[in-house]
C-alpha cells in the first residue's frame, strides 16, 4: 500500500483558489479571454467606417451564429464574473495585508497603469453594463433604438456628446488597463524569460494603444461629423 492520498478535484480547486497565486491565475486566464475579445470586437466594429451595409451585414452574420453566439456570450460572461470576483477578493486582501498605511511612500518602479488597475477596472465594468444597454438591448437608447440597424443605433448613440464622452473616457481607461494587464497575465501564468518578457511588455503597450485609438476613433468620428 502506498501512503499517498489524492485530493478530490473539488478540494484541489478550492485549495488552489484559496491561495493568492490561484486567484491571480484566475485573473490572468479570464483577462486573457476578455482582452482577446476586446481586440476582435474592435476590429468588427471598425467596419463602421465602411458604411451602413457593411456593419449591418456583419451584425447579421453574428446573429446568424445562433448557438455559437450564445456559447461565446456564456464564455465571456463567465470570464467577466470570474475576473470581477477575483479582483474584488484580491482588493480586500490587499487592504487587509497592510492595515496601517505609510506616512510617506514612494513608487520607484510601479507604472501608472499598474497603480490604477483597481480604478480603471470597475469604471470599465460599469461602462460595459451601459454599453450593453446602449447598443445590444437598447434601453439606454430608448425610442431611437432600431433592432437590427446597428449602423443607425451607433450614429444616433454617438451623436449624444455625453454618451460619446463616456465611451472615450472608458476606452482610454481600458487601454491603460491593458497596458499593464496584457503583460501581467503572462507573468501570473508563469511566463517570464529575459528573451521574451521585454517583447511581451512591448506587445502590451502596442495592444493598449491599438485598442485605445481604435475604440476612441468611433465615437470621435461620429461626434465631429466624419461619419453620419
Amino acid at each position: 500500500m502506498s501512503s499517498i492520498a489524492v485530493n478530490s478535484g473539488l478540494n484541489r480547486t478550492a485549495t488552489f483558489y484559496h491561495s493568492v497565486v490561484g486567484k491571480k491565475v484566475v485573473m490572468a486566464v479570464s483577462g486573457f479571454v476578455l482582452s482577446g475579445f476586446v481586440l476582435g470586437h474592435m476590429f468588427g466594429n471598425l467596419q463602421l467606417f465602411q458604411g451602413r451595409e457593411k456593419l449591418n451585414h456583419y451584425a447579421e452574420m453574428l446573429q446568424s451564429l445562433g448557438g455559437l453566439l450564445w456559447f461565446a456570450r456564456f464564455v465571456l460572461l463567465s470570464a467577466a464574473v470570474l475576473h470581477i470576483t477575483a479582483a474584488f477578493q484580491l482588493w480586500r486582501l490587499k487592504n487587509e495585508a497592510r492595515p496601517q498605511a505609510y506616512v510617506k511612500k514612494a513608487h520607484i518602479a510601479t507604472s501608472y497603469a499598474a497603480r490604477t488597475m483597481i480604478w480603471s477596472g470597475p469604471i470599465v465594468g460599469a461602462f460595459l453594463v451601459y454599453h450593453i444597454l446602449h447598443f445590444t438591448t437598447g434601453q439606454a437608447l430608448g425610442d431611437q433604438f432600431i433592432k437590427g440597424d446597428v449602423y443607425h443605433n451607433v450614429i444616433v448613440g454617438f451623436q449624444n456628446p455625453a454618451a460619446s464622452f463616456f465611451y472615450i473616457i472608458a476606452n482610454i481607461l481600458l487601454a491603460i488597463h491593458l497596458y499593464h494587464g496584457v503583460w501581467s497575465m503572462f507573468q501570473s501564468l508563469g511566463v517570464n524569460h529575459p528573451k521574451y518578457t521585454p517583447k511581451l511588455k512591448t506587445l502590451a503597450k502596442v495592444y493598449g494603444w491599438v485598442i485605445g485609438i481604435g475604440n476612441v476613433s468611433m465615437p470621435l468620428a461620429v461626434l465631429v461629423g466624419l461619419v453620419k
Partner: peptide, 22 residues
Amino acid sequence: MVLKMTDEGFGYCTNTGECEAV
C-alpha cells in the same frame, strides 16, 4: 510555501516590479 504565505496574511503579486527595484 505558497499556502503558508497566503495564510500568514501577505498580499498578492500585481507584477508592479516594485520589489525587484528595492
